[in-house]
Design a protein around this nucleic acid. Structure first.
Lengths: 346, 346
DNA sequence: CTGAAAGCGCTTACAG
DNA sequence: CTGAAAGCGCTTACAG
């Protein structure tokens, strides 16, 4: 059995990193001058500046960010908190927004630290904060009663929520689920039908409540009476979804609105099992396009959000806040309504 | 429109962090002594040690990890590199292993920095390495020709691959896909059937090649001739998968082995569309249980891997390597074979 | 415009 | 067993 051993000292001579002192020495200037040439802060002669910059470029000198941070009392890190126990339907959201965050951070010479928390424990986040390894944190998709929010507030460390909260005291950036859902449902009602059922996920997630509001808005706008008997929430298992679909069928709904793609997937399966045609007999839409339904037939009409852009923007907002810039308390991003085969929109 | 502004200086008096100097001063000892009490390194009187520890506990002192790192030329960070552009079927893998990595790191007082790369760019990784912000890196699920591997090797920074590579010079930790796939296919062949088709994903991913080897192993072990005409690889779109299924049907296969759940999902749909019964007419298995098929009927026989444990182990191996401990070049983790409705195993 | 010096919050030979 | 001092690689008043 082959084994490995890290023997860094052997090649230490080879790639010893060059420091600011080395640069200063080689150029017969002070470290101060080198530092100024790099940061652009403080007065410095244009020619010396160029000389330093040229040498740095030439010799591939990279300042040690850790040391820089220590001196400035910054870390140039932000933390991204994601649920360790999310379900499949939410994964594309996290994956995509994550990429947006990483790229935006990278572009600003920041790095992102990953912190996973579970519903029951914020231990990892606490450790991270205690260790002072970050300048700020991004929280994603919060729960209605979110312990992480409480933790962050208590520490008075800059943070922004990538999602929505009714707490106006916290910075928020989110997709405009509410308007999107409202427009989508509005399109359904606009075709003249009124019996539109809703099947939703756990009310524990703020996003699900927001979607529900959008659904309600549509009825209000259309002047159609909303029947609460057609609304099924907290459907977090196949069984619950199936039973909801059956009840909706008995109610003779003309359309079923699904809050997410997992729900929609089950709904389509139940309808297919009963040989109910979509969209001819019952139209179906999903509130979120996660590619989970990509291979499903019929293709489902749904809302398309740019999660990567959301991540990037959230990151930018956090960075601006850290720098002390004045920013809007809440930012909402647009969406696209994608009409596919599962509806009979004109 | 409400706006926010970060005004840290206002409450700076409130939560100024206490430093090692404060502790030393309060206790009338030197910083050296405090440092030793905490680290456990160097000789120190048991009573002074207790005294220091008590004070620290009492006043909630947390050493500044950044400063500690600077002095020791360590960062107490590792980087996790994940593809920014992975597809749905791989998300559960990344999500779960991520959690394992974070928790193991946390338990060792390390933090994990997130780096996303795309097939075409390793820029983020390069930046991270240049900035010296990590002591080591975890690479996940490498491609056959992986630029990240080349980059890491050139930098001679400790790294381990969470996945498999034929390059024996790199540290690897992986699920034992090969043995798993072999056993699963072996069970099929053991029922007396011989015409077992295979539909696989992109050969660009090492993991898909490994699974293919497991498939081949099974035939060899069973003494059954493997028909290459029943093997379809690089099926990375619905169209290709559908066409593969149709060819396999024409070949009168008795079973179809799917390399992952997305493939399997499409296969089941095609079979259902043609009213071909699973498992009565064609048995079906998937090589990876990603919960993507959870709501599908019939439930699919597949392999179950503990991705979270894989992440944790990978992290542990990297940390041991960083510490200079001797470790095995390659570690393989077990799996569980879950027999469900889609097969006719005895 | 430039530099010497102190400092960020730790660790670690070295000396006692 | 304990401490003074130098050092990790930067930044930033302060002085010139």
């Amino acid at each position: 059995m082959e084994t490995f051993r890290n023997e860094r000292w052997e090649n230490e001579s080879g790639n010893k990193k060059i420091t600011i002192s080395d640069v200063a020495e080689a150029l017969h200037v002070s470290k101060t001058t080198v530092s100024r040439a790099i940061s652009g802060k403080g007065r410095i002669g244009e020619d010396t500046r160029q000389k330093v910059l040229a040498y740095i470029e030439e010799n591939d000198y990279k300042p040690n960010v850790i040391a820089k941070g220590l001196a400035q009392k910054k870390t140039y890190n932000i933390a991204l908190v994601i649920p360790g126990d999310c379900n499949l339907v939410d994964m594309p959201f996290f994956q995509n927004s994550m990429q947006g965050i990483c790229e935006e951070a990278s572009a600003n010479d920041y790095d992102v630290m990953l912190v996973t928390t579970t519903g029951s424990s914020s231990a990892n986040l606490e450790r991270m904060l205690a260790n002072n390894k970050v300048d700020g944190v991004i929280l994603s998709r919060s729960l209605v009663k979110d312990r992480n929010v409480a933790l962050l507030k208590a520490q008075s460390i800059p943070f922004v929520l990538m999602g929505t909260s009714r707490d106006e005291k916290i910075l928020q950036v989110d997709n405009d689920h509410r308007t999107g859902c409202s427009e989508l449902v509005g399109r359904m009602l606009g075709t003249g039908i009124a019996k539109v059922g809703l099947i939703g996920g756990s009310k524990n997630y703020v996003v699900n409540r927001t979607r529900r509001q959008g659904y309600a808005d549509a009825f209000k706008n259309a002047g159609v009476q909303l029947e609460t008997s057609l609304i099924f929430e907290d459907c977090d298992s196949s069984d619950k979804i199936e039973s909801a679909v059956e009840k909706l069928i008995r109610e003779n709904v003309q359309a079923i609105v699904c809050m997410d793609d997992v729900i929609c997937s089950v709904v389509l399966q139940v309808l297919a099992g009963k040989d109910i045609l979509v969209p001819q007999e019952i139209q179906t839409v999903s509130f979120y396009d996660s590619t989970l339904l990509k291979n499903r037939k019929p293709a489902v009409t749904s809302l398309l959000f740019d999660d990567k852009a959301l991540g990037a923007l959230t990151c930018r907002v956090l960075l601006q806040y850290i720098r002390g810039e004045r920013i809007e308390a809440k930012t909402l991003l647009g969406y696209e309504l994608v009409v596919r085969e599962s509806t009979l929109f004109p």
